[in-house]
């Protein structure tokens, strides 16, 4: 497994996606640190920040950026192998299909989450060094906000892994992962406008990705947090098991 991880890391550092991920993350945080304004995307979350909330926690609440950024490692690590048909090289001479799936999923997960944590902490320390305590909170508070999102990002990456192993095409992965949340938000907006479906839509919207990312970083209730984590655990398990079953059945070209 260590050999496989070394190989993956070696190849990953030779891809454009690797540098794109770190450049985009650094670019977003540079703007935040320089202009003292948290920045990021949100599909349909309505987040209200209190004046007492420090800028770094506000930035963590806008971590939906990573929903898009974390598509890149999955694209490079998994889809690259299918589009170049190199998957057969590994399976014919190094490991079995089962081990291949486990190795790829584990590496994608570990790399994505490590990158997520590393970039967030880098932002924290740089922001603290540049802007001081006026714009940054205590290390513990920042860690709590950011690490509280970890189960959600685990579920998101698992879902990406599932899509990558199911569809095998980078273009399909990008299209589905980018369009689905937007289409979902649009649909929910429409349902909210309709009197009969408003209540259901509002309930569903509480568990929409960018809403969960924001709320898990801020002070949400324990019951909401527990429900979010249960959803995340279910999505993670279903995605990883489903991905394996589909990959195992699929004939490799």
């Amino acid at each position: 497994m260590i050999n496989m991880f070394k190989a993956e890391l070696y190849r990953l550092t030779k891809t454009k996606g690797f540098y794109l991920f770190w450049f985009l993350a650094a670019f977003i945080y540079t703007l935040t640190v320089v202009y003292h304004a948290p920045g990021g995307i949100s599909f349909s979350a309505f987040l209200e920040f209190s004046d007492s909330l420090k800028m770094d926690i506000q930035q963590v609440a806008l971590n939906t950026n990573y929903y898009l950024l974390l598509i890149i490692p999955t694209f490079c690590i998994i889809c690259g192998e299918f589009s170049e048909h190199t998957v057969k090289n590994t399976i014919t001479s190094a490991i079995s299909k089962k081990k291949y799936y486990i190795m790829k999923s584990l590496f994608t997960m570990l790399y994505s989450l490590t990158a997520f944590i590393t970039v967030n902490y880098l932002f924290y320390f740089v922001n603290r060094a540049v802007n001081g305590s006026k714009y940054s909170s205590a290390f513990g508070a920042f860690s709590k906000a950011m690490l509280g999102q970890l189960p959600l990002f685990t579920a998101i990456v698992s879902l990406f892994i599932f899509i990558a192993f199911t569809l095998k095409k980078g273009a399909a992965l990008n299209a589905i992962t980018m369009i689905t949340p937007l289409a979902f938000s649009l649909l929910m907006m429409m349902l909210i406008e309709i009197e009969q479906t408003r209540k259901v839509a509002e309930k569903i919207m509480r568990y929409e990705i960018s809403t969960m990312i924001g709320k898990l970083a801020l002070d949400c209730s324990d019951s909401y947090r527990a429900k979010c984590y249960i959803i995340c655990a279910a999505v993670t398990i279903v995605s990883l098991v489903g991905g394996y079953l589909i990959f195992e059945k699929h004939e490799l070209e």
């Binding site: 050999n3 496989m4 190989a7 070696y10 001479s93």
Partner: peptide, 9 residues
């Protein structure tokens, strides 16, 4: 080939 060398140890 270096990539596959890593894989095969």
């Amino acid at each position: 080939l270096r990539y596959y060398c890593f894989q095969k140890g």
